[in-house]
Design a protein around this nucleic acid. Structure first.
Lengths: 342, 342
DNA sequence: CTGAAAGCGCTTACAG
DNA sequence: CTGAAAGCGCTTACAG
């Protein structure tokens, strides 16, 4: 015998069936497939469920494979407020939907290693993959990964990708908007501290910056364009290079809030007065944006909503496997938030 | 027949058993109960697991009732880097252990309402409760909640609590250490911007501050003691009050990094030079601490480790129900991180 | 030390 | 419209 753990007062589908005077599978039918039972039985079963307060056991449902059980999440293990915020949002959304998360960091991992992580997750049972930046781009290049056949979604890429459902904002337009804001404020020597060129969002933001300059007949000066990797430490060095230029830029468009904070640091150390002598903009509107001084003019992405949408897309794709092949591209509206830094 | 969903290449315990040349239950024994297999088979089975990259199906384990299925997490829905970081850490740890999280915010909820949330979670199947600040204190007062009978743990309280396993650092000692650091730096008019008095950790930190003053025969001046609610906006007003004092304090011990950032803001606006004319310290060592200027001298709590420990305690308690009645108090070491703000 | 078998709670073809 | 039966992947007494 198995284990006679029978909790006695455990509320199972059998209890409901007994009370409603039907079989367990009729109860199941009522719960899951509308229209497979007569109205009379439906009512009786529903009454029994309500009276008993029955909630189906998720583990059992998943075991038989009828529900989205588990989504694999690949994220960069780096210390980042943005990533923490996305992780927190995804965790909350997953909990709401009752999906189990399998979370794996791909920090210090080669593209092939990252593909291995994805493969392992699928083999160990995840039914869908959720990618945080920059893994959509990294895995997107390895076609074989999608031989895995599980639906995949990515939050915060900058471009639609062939095999992946992308949930994003229009990074290029957002970056252009920020740059034009600077131009409207009278800035003319506008530098850019871009994110890493492997990230499609960095590239799009850089393009948006250039769009704005071009639209206003401002020269695009390569010396005013430096690259960081989205982290504070690297941005420090990049900001120093930029602020050592002569003549000095009168504005810096940073690729994210963390890098903008680094610019602020260097400016403070150099005794540059903000925003009088230097305007700075960020990106993401993480909590850093409002804590630093002066607070950052930046772009807000609706992270919570994006996480919810990603999970929803994945759930849909898992339920309708035949449509897997048609990933979508969902573009959320962004907001430019004006504060004192620019 | 059930559903012939047989994914073919699905990696089950059977596959491992076959490769190791043993039965499925021997594999299970190796995985779960050490010492129920000969060393030789153990090695063989472990090798097979490693080679195949096998991960047990959590749904199946839970169905048979041998594992912690689901933990309910109650958190304050507030925007906070610290809370986001804790959420992210808990999500990662839960994923590692394969436990499903049920996450609920108790923002804008009365103590009774919070108890209702806990009760609902238990009825809908969570086997344990994990509390983020300040819910341990809030629920700890409502004895009936613990009639629910599920083990409960809390991260980052300041005191041991009767019915709850507490995972914390010694807030009082940490706050004292920070204050003494300020004294050693020659500060004599040290103000405190405390957190809300309902939080046991705020109270402990306030006590630690007083301990330090007393130990060095410094007067405890009520005018130098103001209260915020751990959020940036309220701290702004409190900091203004403090910095309007005359003579002005030469140091401010803030209850957390967010509030310390607010002090920095007000100081910048007032043209106070930092840290020459004013030292500021934070608490938590969130990412804010290193982004603001000057970077904060603060206290680090090992969040990741604390989250892991909490989950481990809960898992243990679920496995051994008879010992439920003996919650523990785990105190982690803290680190004081010296930066430029003090 | 090891394995055959039952069973956890549910759902899905299939038959009536 | 409804139900008996098989099976999802695992673990736990029990027997050898």
């Amino acid at each position: 015998m198995g284990r006679p753990r029978q909790d006695e007062n455990r509320l199972t589908i059998q209890a409901v069936a007994k009370r409603a005077g039907v079989s367990a599978m009729t109860v199941s039918n009522v719960i899951n497939r509308t229209g497979r039972a007569s109205e009379a039985t439906r009512v009786r079963v529903l009454a029994a469920i309500a009276h008993l307060g029955y909630v189906p056991n998720q583990s059992a449902r998943r075991l038989v494979g009828s529900d989205v059980a588990c989504v694999g999440l690949i994220y960069p293990g780096v210390e980042s407020i943005f990533i923490d915020a996305v992780l927190a949002a995804v965790a909350v959304v997953a909990a709401e939907k009752g999906v189990q998360l399998q979370i794996r960091s791909a920090e210090h991992t080669s593209p092939e290693g990252t593909a291995d992580i994805a493969r392992d997750m699928v083999r160990s049972g995840v039914q869908a993959l959720l990618l945080l930046p920059p893994y959509a781009e990294i895995l997107g290049e390895q076609a074989e990964v999608f031989g895995l056949g599980v639906p995949t979604a990515a939050i915060a890429t900058a471009v639609p990708l062939p095999n992946i459902t992308t949930i994003r904002i229009d990074n290029r337009a957002a970056s252009r908007a920020v740059t034009e804001y600077l131009i409207a404020k009278g800035r003319r020597r506008i530098a850019v501290l871009a994110g890493p060129s492997q990230h499609s969002d960095s590239v799009a933001r850089l393009e948006g910056y250039r769009d704005a300059l071009r639209a206003h007949d401002l020269p695009i000066d390569q010396a005013l364009c430096v690259e960081g990797d989205f982290t504070f430490p690297t941005a420090l060095a990049a900001a120093e290079r930029l602020l050592a230029l002569s003549p000095r830029p009168d504005a810096i468009v940073a690729g994210n809030d963390d890098m903008a904070a680094a610019v602020l640091w260097v400016a403070h150390q150099g005794g540059i007065s903000l925003p009088a002598d230097l305007s700075v903009t960020g990106f993401d509107d993480t909590m850093i944006a409002t804590r630093v001084w002066p607070p950052l003019t930046t772009v807000r992405q609706p992270i919570r909503e994006m996480a919810a949408e990603a999970m929803e897309c994945l759930a849909r794709a898992v339920r309708n496997p035949e449509q897997n092949s048609a990933p979508t591209d969902v573009v959320f509206p962004f907001t430019m938030v004006e504060r004192h830094s620019a």
